[in-house]
Design a protein around this nucleic acid. Structure first.
Lengths: 245, 245
DNA sequence: CAGTGGTCTAGACCACACC
DNA sequence: GTGTGGTCTAGACCACTGA
């Protein structure tokens, strides 16, 4: 844990190397989501720097979203929260502008041979067995999204034994509780394409019409790919808004 | 004993009030894009705080994108750079993965009566006259985007007298040089809809097919709306990728 | 060279959470 | 109360820029 920062190569500043060391502790798993970091004073002493320098290292972790400060309590490793990520893409408000939360319905879970493409995304050998999960997400009974999700069979095996009523709206807490795999970040890629027959059926659309496709690769703290999913949604509900600069 | 009325608002930290004061200087225009800020020492003295406190205020301006530090030279008010914003949405690379830059072609510029909707976006009275600009943006002669742009006539009048060869690929530098209006930030909203006849013609598409629509509201340093534009592009070129958390 | 930002120190006092 | 993070001070030395 403790690095020798006294004889520094002035390549990188001390606060930066402390930041890297603590980030590595988080990514390696010696600091887990929800854990409290050592106090700023303790960090300063154990690395042999002034409190302000240790604080600047923690500032970097906060800015980059790895930890959260709680005044009077401590600094804690952050847990990812994707619960509102759908609202980024779809108009999930009722007529009074109140946020709506989509319900998930599990359609199917089975083991399938992985395609080259998906195995590559998941950093697995070409013909690995995968768990395939199919879901529909609805708002007010209106089907909003159809999702197909792929996971490594070896890593998520215990999902297969879950009773149907254990499946809630959110998968990532389930991954954590049942399989001990924590999703920290994800990359979403949007595109548009024709909808195949099965998703079309669940979205109440004729096959072949254009839908928005959201491909997501979710990763753990150590950047290992954990999940690949393809979500398809109706174009007429789609919108996405954000700031430049 | 009377309660202290000032405690209605809890006292904000000094660095934050200095940040607000300097931000207001930028938004009011007493500090313009490209201007150099007073040195950290000078700011500290003029506000009567320690250098570290002044520095923290500047840190906030840097983090929020208002100013840029240049080691050994000074801290400067930032100029917005939207030149690569299109690359966020479209695959603008050739087969070797080299970035391509779209060329703009001016189709039309005229004065039109504003619709209620657009005038509202621009914060103008309902029936204001607007300047309407129509453009096509091409990569390798391939039409990528059709754009319709609306500006307040009173504020951008001098654009109407520009010779055709004065129009380059980028409009925002033109706004700044010709009309003294500086775009600092913009909000883009993505959706999908059927393409009307005129844009369809310029995009080599049959009217009515689905296209991606990017509505942009651009604002100045003081948050006043300056420009509203609607860009339409072919779905098969569209993609958008980004990180969550 | 003088002036700027970049790093760092070694303290101080305050506000908040928990016991 | 103790321990935590939040703010602030008044310096120090370094690295970079430009005259």
């Amino acid at each position: 844990m403790q690095a020798n920062l006294q004889q520094d190569e002035p390549r990188s500043p001390r606060y930066y190397r402390i930041y890297q060391a603590m980030l590595s502790d988080i990514q390696q798993g010696s600091l887990k989501p929800g854990d409290v970091l050592p106090s700023e004073m303790h960090i300063a002493q154990s690395y042999g720097v002034a409190p302000g320098t240790a604080r600047k290292a923690i500032d970097m972790l906060v800015d980059r979203g790895w930890v959260e400060r709680q005044h009077g309590k401590g600094t804690f490793v952050r847990r990812a929260d994707f619960s509102h990520s759908l609202a980024r893409f779809f108009r999930l408000t009722d007529r009074e502008g109140v946020q709506l939360h989509p319900k998930s319905e599990l359609l199917d879970i089975r083991v399938v041979p992985g395609t080259t493409d998906i195995c590559h995304h998941l950093d697995l050998p070409d013909d690995s067995e995968l768990i395939q999960i199919e879901r529909v997400r609805r708002v007010d009974e209106m089907p909003l999204l159809h999702e197909v999700i792929y996971l490594s069979r070896t890593r998520f095996q215990s999902l297969l034994n879950l009773p149907p009523d254990a499946w809630g709206d959110l998968l990532y807490p389930l991954y954590e509780q049942v399989c001990g795999e924590v999703v920290f970040r994800a990359t979403d890629t949007l595109s548009v394409g024709p909808v195949p027959e099965s998703p079309a059926h669940h979205l109440d659309l004729p096959p072949g019409v254009q839908v928005i496709e959201i491909a997501r690769l979710a990763r753990g703290y150590d950047e290992r790919p954990l999940e690949w999913r393809l979500s398809r949604g109706r174009l007429d509900w789609f919108h996405y808004s954000f700031d430049i600069r």
